[in-house]
Design a binder for these strands. Sequence first.
RNA 1: GGACAGGUGGGUGAGUGGCUAAAACCAACAGACUGUAAAUCUGUCGCUCCUUGCGAGCUACGAAGGUUCGAAUCCUUCCCUGUCCA
Length: 344
Amino acid sequence: MPVGTQATVKGLTPEHLAGELDAKIILGNTYHLYLRPGHELIRQFGGLHRFMHWERAILTDSGGFQVFSLDGLRKVREDGVLFRSHLNGDRHLFTPESTVDVQQALGSDIAMVLDECPPYPLEWHKARKSMELTVRWARRAFEHYRALPEDSRVNQALFPIVQGGMHHDLRLGCIEELAALGAEGYAIGGLSVGEPRELSMEIADLCVPRLPIDKPRYVMGVGLPEELPQYVARGVDMMDCVMPSRNARNGCLFTSEGRVVIKQARFREDPLPVDPACGCYTCRHFSRAYLRHLFLAGEMLFCTLTTIHNLRYYLDIMRRIRKSILIGRFPELLREFGARIPVD
RNA sequence: GGACAGGUGGGUGAGUGGCUAAAACCAACAGACUGUAAAUCUGUCGCUCCUUGCGAGCUACGAAGGUUCGAAUCCUUCCCUGUCCA
């Protein structure tokens, strides 16, 4: 899932996303859209889809990640998270209930429960306390969500988020509690917070097989291109990551031959496309030398072209994975990406 | 011809006796980026050497000379640039 925090995947038009990239679903963010432009304004415009002219699916994150990333601008309490706006310092209380309401106003297809995304490393006792709070919040969110009046309720799935730090017993305990909610899908959160990559994989390996197999399983905030098949091999159905879009803007391109840091001097006169094996618009029409020029000149087209490429590269990997599964050749593809087949 | 102002590292530009191999910004080069406070951030950025140390040596603030323990900073002469006046 490409990430479009502020009702835009930075640098792209919805036409890029739906056409060239053929993305089926993108992310939005409750915290950011609540602060600006405001969920009521978006409701006025007929919801996030119409507001941003995106007809396909949208998943909105709850603001739980901002508990992590805006550490210092927030206070976690029993009733919710008290944020101090990063824009102007105003105080806003996010509760499990209000977060459901805001996402109802946004009208996303999948809403996420408010969770506490804790930092890494975190000792067992603190991780336990944090996980238990996340579980209580999830229950409250679901209670509120299910009590929404039928007539005004927007059709929307709500996913709870497994926490528990890097502690196996806490993760398993959390899964047990959340599974009882009978949600339409489940997420694993608290990864991609600075831990070693093998550890993210280890936790996914532990959690994913224990989540309901007939429901979408979503690992939040991962990963590198070569990790995507590995997560899928562990039973992951959904992933999102800012890496393809953010790195594109910063000049780091993912290719079948590894990373290409397009701003490097060695590409000054390079006539080749970013990735000769890629079929994206950028690779079909532009040289590395041209992209490097755009970067050095600070041209905004740079962001557009590189974001198209990186997202296409990610989404192509996912398309290949889906296809290989359908024709029963996923193990071969997994081997091609140099991954070991999981024990489970 | 005259009167002012000024010449600093790739660029802009601070610095007016020692804390200055010289602020800051830009450029250049390299690195980072994981549910986006990110078109952001970090590092390097005169040369050489090594035991890589808040190390040693050399060169450097237009040029040459001088004053001083010590000069980008003060003095003298010269060269150059800009503005204004004739």
